[in-house]
Design a protein around this nucleic acid. Structure first.
Length: 467
RNA sequence: GCGCCGGUAGCUCAAUUGGCAGAGCAUUUGACUCUUAAUCAACAGGUUCCGGGUUCAAGUCCCGGCCGGCGCACCA
């Protein structure tokens, strides 16, 4: 294939559609433009040919007349999917379609495969995800969902910058996988002769930067968790984490709801949307309810982290949950909340005051040392964000890690390990600080009205093909 | 990892009770000077996901495997 190395393109389909909307049927503008894109449809009619050209902005018709169009015969033989660059006058055809009347054209690249059925596109999930490049042309909705994700990321960055957060990058290769409860991927560095883990969260590194004097930091990046794949889970996903010195969890809740509502406004122009056919509102402020309140409402009796463990176990068993011997009352309460409440939380809500037992990095609650100043926001029945007043006492942090180590020894594969470097960092002094984590893919799903996380990930993790 | 469902032409889909594997679009060829998913005519296109089995006969039934969707589990 002998094709050009460049094309001097100066117009986009969507811009032409709006700029020349005034042209009347059969009117010629006298303006010659150069457009480029893929031929998505071709209608030939003897000495005439009409092609639908699609570029990144939209579509415009190419109108070729044998008498005017250079090498008309081959133009009419272009395949659907071929890339072309076209020079021609902007006109409106007699039948009212804004078009570029082809004077000269060049095939920029050939499509050896087609882009699916003209009507149905490509529907096979395997083909769509393994060959997203084809899916993007075959299914405009796929392109829109990924574009929405990009808009979400841009909005997050701009809003964090506007609030004076510094964007930083921390290691993905970690000697200890920590900062969250999850199983890691492992890998090996040959020259250092050391095992490494892909990060499951950037949390501890970011707080070390706060110790170092970066008072407001954020990182927008990939984390990796060696867990199940589902419509709401991809093994690698994108997390926003941010930390603000001198804030507590109340301050961070206020920031979170403003951030998320702001992203919705930036991307969709409104906070009032439909998600999966149901009205959904991002509007701030979001209600705040404690975990104990919500669980109590759900089970019809007063429960809290101080309820007798045996009673919590009964309530869990009644709901088919098997309780492990290592779970204390705090873990039992958190489980009870998850099974009774989580799915019913539709519009965004902050669930607050998590038990210490399930929050090894969060600061104890000022009103109850068995609780932490921690919140999670829930939306559409799923966790959207997680944040807390950060534990900054190195002695308490060490005892929390030691408790985690006990759980690990007892077989909990997701328990954290003791991170001595992190404890030493806290010994240098972490000011009062609040932190936040938001699942960017989950947020993008809400914004793009997608129920499957793969629709907002360009190349989701798939099982490699084998024989 | 477990359960349920699915995999037929390049794409989207049919195929009755186990009885000749089909259509539309795309491709190829031809007709056509205003089409809009153009239209019309013709040709071609198959390891029915892979491997076994049952049967006179398997896309269809049985067993095993591969990949996907959904649910469960884990989690965000």
């Amino acid at each position: 294939m002998n094709t050009p190395y460049s094309f001097d393109h100066n117009a986009f389909a969507a811009a032409l559609q709006s700029t020349y909307s005034h042209l009347t049927d059969g009117e010629e503008s006298g303006v010659v433009v150069k457009v480029a894109g893929r031929v998505m449809l071709m209608r030939t009619q003897g000495k005439l040919a009409f092609a639908t050209l699609r570029d990144s902005s939209g579509e415009i018709q190419l109108f070729a007349l044998a008498a005017v169009c250079e090498d008309f015969e081959n133009f009419a033989k272009l395949h659907l999917g071929d890339w072309v660059g076209v020079t021609g006058e902007v006109v409106r055809t007699k039948r009212g379609e804004l078009s570029v009347k082809v004077q000269s054209w060049v095939q920029l690249a050939e499509a050896l495969h087609n882009f699916g059925d003209k009507w149905a596109g490509i529907t096979d999930y395997d083909l769509r995800y393994r060959h997203r490049e084809a899916d993007l042309w075959a299914n405009p909705a796929s392109r829109q969902s990924l574009a929405r994700r990009s808009d979400v990321v841009r909005s997050i960055r701009e809003r964090c910058w506007a609030a004076h957060f510094t964007e930083v990058e921390t290691p993905m290769l970690n000697a200890i996988a920590t900062g969250a409860a999850a199983r890691p991927f492992t890998t090996f560095h040959n020259a250092l002769d050391s095992e490494f883990f892909l990060r499951i969260a950037p949390e501890l590194w970011l707080k070390r930067l706060v110790v170092g004097g970066f008072e407001r930091v954020f990182e927008l990046g990939r984390v990796f968790r060696n867990e199940g794949v589902s419509p709401r889970h991809n093994p690698e996903f994108t997390m926003l984490e941010l930390y603000a010195a001198y804030w507590n969890y109340e301050d961070m809740m206020a920031f979170t709801e403003e951030l998320v509502a702001g992203v919705a406004t930036d991307v969709l122009g409104t906070t009032e949307v439909e998600y999966q056919g149901r009205p959904f509102s991002f509007a701030a402020p979001w209600p705040r309810r404690t975990m104990a309140e919500l669980a109590s409402d759900a089970v019809g009796e007063e429960v809290s982290v101080h309820t007798a463990r045996a009673r919590l176990v009964e309530l869990l068993n009644d709901r088919g949950v098997e309780v492990h011997a290592s779970w204390g009352a705090g873990r039992c309460l958190a489980e009870l909340f998850e099974v009774t409440c989580e799915e019913s939380l539709w519009n965004p809500i902050f669930v607050t005051d998590f038990p210490v037992e399930v929050s090894p990095l969060a600061r104890r609650h000022q009103g109850d040392p068995e609780l932490t100043e921690r919140f999670e926001s829930y939306a559409a029945g799923r966790e959207l964000s997680n944040g807390f007043s950060e534990l900054n006492d190195p002695v308490d942090q060490r005892s929390r890690f030691e408790e985690q180590a006990r759980l690990g020894a007892a077989g909990d594969l997701e328990a954290m390990r003791i991170d001595e470097d992190y404890i030493k960092a806290l010994e240098w002094g972490l000011p009062p600080t609040a932190g936040l984590g938001i699942g960017v893919d989950r947020l993008s799903m809400l914004i793009a009205d997608e129920s499957n996380i793969r629709e907002v990930i360009a190349f989701p993790t798939l099982k490699p093909l084998r024989d």
